Amino acid sequence: MEITIEPWKKLIIHEVIEYSFDDWMTQIAFSSKTAGGAIPTINWANGIVFQSFNFPDTNIIVEEKLKGVLHWSSVMFAIKEKYEKQLIKDNATINLIDVSVNEIFKKLADRLKEHSKQKSQN
């Protein structure tokens, strides 16, 4: 039996939306409260908090994936240099998960830092 590992070759992000960290956490806290109080979880890698949104798996998207190309419809992000497991914002809890072990997410964080128009925040 042959086992092959083929890493992704390319990630294409079709829209990048940057927020200030405080503004985005306020928005997430408000959305959490209005949605019934579920605890939202946001990805953190190398100084960036982010959420990504995939396209649905249509035939074209699956064909691209089989070629090693990921297409994300959008990524929302903010600068957050210091990792914390949990944040409390406006009486809402927001969990951060450290996804820095994922090579794609580490490279994404570096690229988003380059793209950022915000100053570093802790």
Rank of each mutant, 00 (worst) to 15 (best):
A38S: 10
F21H: 15
L112P: 03
G37S: 03
M76F: 08
I94G: 07
Y19F: 11
S116F: 01
L70W: 10
S116M: 00
F50G: 04
N46R: 10
P56T: 02
G36S: 04
S74P: 04
L66K: 14
T41F: 10
T41Y: 11
A92T: 05
Y83G: 03
L112C: 03
V75G: 04
D90T: 03
L108Q: 06
K80F: 12
V101Q: 15
T26S: 15
L66N: 12
I104S: 14
W24I: 00
T58Y: 12
K89F: 02
Y83K: 09
I60V: 11
I39V: 02
R111P: 01
V69D: 12
I97F: 12
G68Y: 08
F77A: 05
G68P: 04
N91K: 11
H115I: 00
F53G: 12
I104D: 15
F55I: 05
W72H: 12
K117F: 01
E103H: 08
H71F: 05
I97K: 15
A109P: 02
F77I: 01
K80I: 02
K67P: 06
D57E: 14
L108T: 02
D98I: 02
N43K: 13
A45K: 09
D90A: 02
Q51Y: 09
Q51C: 10
N102S: 08
A38G: 12
Q27F: 05
N95I: 00
N46F: 07
I88V: 10
H71I: 00
G37Y: 06
N95D: 12
F21V: 05
K113Q: 04
L87I: 08
F53V: 09
L70C: 11
P56G: 04
S31H: 08
K106I: 03
N95H: 09
V101P: 14
A109I: 00
S31I: 03
K85C: 06
S32R: 02
E63W: 08
I28D: 11
I39C: 05
P56K: 08
L70I: 11
S20K: 12
G36D: 06
V101C: 14
V99A: 14
I39M: 05
D98R: 07
P56F: 03
H71W: 04
M76P: 03
G47E: 13
W24Y: 04
V69L: 09
E103P: 07
P40W: 04
I28S: 11
